[in-house]
Computed example of a mutant assay.
Amino acid sequence: MFTGIIEELGTITKLEKEKENLHIHIESNITHELKIDQSVAHNGVCLTVVAIKDRSYVVTAIQETLNKTNLSHWKVGDQVNLERAMKMGARLDGHIVQGHVDQTGICTRIREEDGSWRFSFTYDPEKSNVTIEKGSVTIDGTSLTVVDSGKDHFSVAIIPYTYDHTIFKNYKVGTIVNLEFDVVGKYVARIMELRGKEF
C-alpha cells in the first residue's frame, strides 16, 4: 500500500531482458535504505527489490506488467518516481494507492498558468475506469486531485514543488503515463455494473 507522495527520483541505468521478464537497474539516493524483497512503487508500479549494489538496485517486471503499464517504453537515463510502502500509523498525506496500474493514459495538453501548470490526459473509456471532479487519481505514482473530469479525459493542476520533485517536469504532449484510479470509485463502478446486469 502506498500514498502517492513521491519520495525520490531514480534513474534507470540498465535494462536487461530475460525471456519475458525485464530486469531494471535503478540508481537512487534511497538505495542504501532498501532491502531485498522490499516493495517500491516505480511510476506507480509496485515492484520487488531483488538485488542491491552500491547506489543501485534491481527490480523485475513480468510481461503482464509490461503490457499494462508504460514500463515497456522506459529507456536508460529515464527518471522514475519512487515511493516506498507506507508505514502503518503514519499520516496518509495522499490517498490510498495500491501500486496496481489500471491502464495507461496519454498527455494531451500542458498549459502553464499563474504559478502552476495544468496537465490534461486522455484514456480508453472501454475499461470502465472513471474520474470525478475533486476526486483522486494517481499518475505515474503521484497522488493528485482531478479537475475537468470527462468520460475519457481529465486534467490535474501541478504546483511548483510537485513539478520540480517528480517526473512531471519531463512530460511532453504524447507522453504515456500510468494511471491508477481511486479504489473506492472502482468498487462503486463495479457494484453499479453488477446491479445493472440484475435488472
Rank of each mutant, 00 (worst) to 15 (best):
T162I: 11
G99N: 01
T145W: 02
V97F: 04
G174N: 08
G141Q: 01
S155A: 15
I132Q: 12
S155W: 06
R109P: 09
T145E: 04
Q98H: 13
Q98M: 12
S128Q: 14
Q98W: 09
Y123S: 04
K134R: 11
V146Y: 00
I167C: 04
Y163N: 05
R118P: 04
G150W: 04
Y171L: 07
V101G: 07
V97S: 00
E133T: 11
N129K: 15
P160S: 09
G105Y: 04
Y171E: 03
E113T: 14
I158F: 05
H95A: 08
F168P: 00
H165K: 12
D164C: 05
T108E: 07
H153S: 15
F121D: 03
Q103G: 05
Q98I: 03
T131M: 03
H95L: 12
S136W: 01
S155E: 09
V147H: 07
H165R: 11
I159S: 02
I167D: 01
G99R: 00
F121M: 03
E112R: 13
Q103A: 11
G115T: 13
G115A: 10
V147C: 10
D114G: 12
K127M: 15
F121K: 02
F168E: 00
D164N: 14
D102S: 01
W117S: 12
G105F: 03
V147L: 06
H95Y: 12
I106P: 01
I176C: 10
